[in-house]
């Protein structure tokens, strides 16, 4: 091989080397702020409990076995997953039409709609949750309005349970499903829908057979994002859930921060993370299989 031929190859190897170095800061950050803390939490979860030290001397699996044998913990875990799934489904049903409209719209008012979509993220989480408390409490705006129009005689229990948490989380996380969907829908060529229509398919059939299948990657990304954010949310369930809407993250914080039970709290956090990974993994497999079957 001549020197002239070898030159681009050397250049390419050098580029690869630079690219590898560029990854190092992100890698250091990931190891330093993700892998190491996780490792610390896992180690902490295996420590013995103590009220005379931060944790005991030895190692044990007792925090895991006692949590997994405890129906109360299973109940909270089940409620957390149910809230996550409900928020995800409602967000998808509400968010898809909005994303679809934004993707197709040529109106000059579209930017206003963007602001509406992003509005839940423009207000602080605690302030937003306080607003929901004012709306959903027994003497709140919602109950007063329902009583004023004669639909109910006594206030409905709209907060301090899963319902209040679900309503507020849906409001908070709606943009997280709309934005990935929007990107995905905008990337679908309008020619495909036009071709479908020109071949005689109705608008509805075109949507079901062309647009919806092609937007599956956006649905998948958005639903995973909303599900994971919902099951790990803390402020909203802590403020609106009360005892009837307590979720795993609230319980974990109570163990760690209120009761100072770092080993037991760490074990609960790991269980929660493991369950989330399992659910997301299963969902990914199911949706990937469904996408492969698409026409």
């Amino acid at each position: 091989m001549s020197a002239v031929e070898a030159a681009p190859r050397i250049e390419s190897r050098s580029n690869r080397g630079s690219a590898t170095w560029m990854v190092v800061p992100a890698l250091v950050l990931l190891i330093g702020f993700f892998a190491l803390p996780y490792l610390t939490i896992i180690t902490m979860s295996l420590r013995e409990a103590s009220t005379r030290a931060v944790y005991g001397e030895g190692f044990t699996l007792a925090h895991y076995t006692s949590a997994l044998r405890d129906f109360y913990i299973w109940g909270i875990l089940g409620r957390t997953l149910l809230i996550g799934a409900t928020v995800t489904v409602i967000s998808l049903l509400l968010g898809y039409p909005v994303a679809y409209h934004l993707a197709k719209s040529r109106s000059r008012w579209t930017s206003l709609l963007y602001i509406f979509v992003l509005s839940p993220l423009l207000v602080g989480l605690v302030v937003r949750t306080f607003a929901w408390m004012i709306i959903l409490s027994n003497n709140g705006v919602a109950n007063q309005a329902l009583q004023a129009v004669g639909l109910i005689d006594f206030p409905l229990q709209l907060m301090n349970n899963s319902l209040g948490v679900t309503i507020a989380l849906t409001h908070v996380f709606l943009p997280f499903i709309i934005l990935p969907l929007l990107g995905n829908l905008q990337a679908i060529s309008p020619d495909l829908a036009m071709a479908s229509r020109s071949l005689g398919a109705s608008r509805m059939r075109t949507f079901w057979k062309v647009t919806l299948p092609l937007s599956m990657p956006g649905i998948q990304a958005g639903t995973i994002l909303v599900f994971v954010l919902s099951i790990s949310a803390y402020v909203t369930p802590a403020m609106l859930g009360g005892t009837g809407g307590r979720t795993m993250s609230v319980l974990v914080v109570q163990y760690l921060v209120d009761n100072f039970r770092w080993p037991a709290g760490a074990a609960l956090a790991i269980i929660m993370a493991a369950v989330a990974v399992i659910f997301v993994g299963l969902y990914l497999r199911l949706t990937a299989r469904a996408m492969r079957r698409l026409p």
């Binding site: 306080f130 408390m133 403020m239 005892t243």
Partner: peptide, 17 residues
């Protein structure tokens, strides 16, 4: 009604809950 801190108890009193 259960509240996490005094401010939340105060809010419950103000709302009449």
């Amino acid at each position: 009604t259960q509240a996490s801190w005094s401010g939340e108890v105060a809010t419950a009193l103000i709302r009449g809950d």
